[in-house]
Design a protein around this nucleic acid. Sequence first.
DNA 1: TGCCGTTTTGACAATGGTTGTCACTCTTGA
DNA 2: TCAAGAGTGACAACCATTGTCAAAACGGCA
Lengths: 144, 144
Amino acid sequence: MRIDREQATQVTMPAKEHRRTRQRAAVDEVLDETDDFISAQELHALLRARGAGVGLATVYRTLQTLADDGRVDVLRSDAGEAVYRRCVREEHHHHLVCRSCGATVEIAGPTVERWAKSVADQHGYTDVSHTLEIFGTCPRCAAA
Amino acid sequence: MRIDREQATQVTMPAKEHRRTRQRAAVDEVLDETDDFISAQELHALLRARGAGVGLATVYRTLQTLADDGRVDVLRSDAGEAVYRRCVREEHHHHLVCRSCGATVEIAGPTVERWAKSVADQHGYTDVSHTLEIFGTCPRCAAA
DNA sequence: TGCCGTTTTGACAATGGTTGTCACTCTTGA
DNA sequence: TCAAGAGTGACAACCATTGTCAAAACGGCA
Ligand SMILES: [Zn+2]
Ligand SMILES: [Zn+2]
Ligand SMILES: [Zn+2]
Ligand SMILES: [Zn+2]
């Protein structure tokens, strides 16, 4: 297994400058309007539907860049597909996601962070990072 | 995005009976000997290397079945590849994985479980599940 | 032990998300 | 305005995973 996360650089690198293009603006716009996690394919379909055509490869590249710069959050759907979301918080946080409608709540708390750190310390692991997502049925979907 | 986890049934279903075959025994053996998370492809290559040839499709099916029965844990590598591991604990737990060598420590603690539950409750989410993995550099790799 | 319905296997095709290619276009700073 | 180089897009290539389906293996039963 290979696990390469650019953890160290992610914190120190100030996010390299990128050029402003119509395509990136279009992707940005969709991300701003969308509150759920969305896949590259879905985003591409949306853009095509609204007329602002953007190449699929470009959508992938743009999302990748945004993710690298920490401007969008990425997680993997159960199908293994990467899904993206522009989050309100810039800092490290996690997500409470509705399984049926995708409604997402951003979660940030020192509790888990401390716990993860302490667990890693206990076993002598260094340079620690973690992934954590909570899934459930949101109130609205539960009512339906 | 689609998130379909058979959460409810996973707890109640008593794991259906399966036939004993040479191929499944071979996969089982490798899993027992391997302490790291391993991908279907890697497992298949291992089997081929040690002479006990097993079809790739069979390896995939076997791992899938084992995962469904809760006899192996699955998580996704950064490359999005599914990786499997036979865990000591049968009950719900998490993993502290070394990024460079894959050495894994099983983690079980009520702290996060309670935290996740409480966070979900606060937002009215029900039928809650979560995914959590911790990555780091193990002492051995840090020393090297 | 031999038979039979059922499960499992495996070689291969097919799927589908993602990345690579490369000539062409656009952005940016001078 | 202009040149350098970043960005784009149509398409091919990749590669993990799943579907197909006839042949082989398994397990219970006579
Ligand atoms: Zn987020
Ligand atoms: Zn965290
Ligand atoms: Zn485990
Ligand atoms: Zn847990």
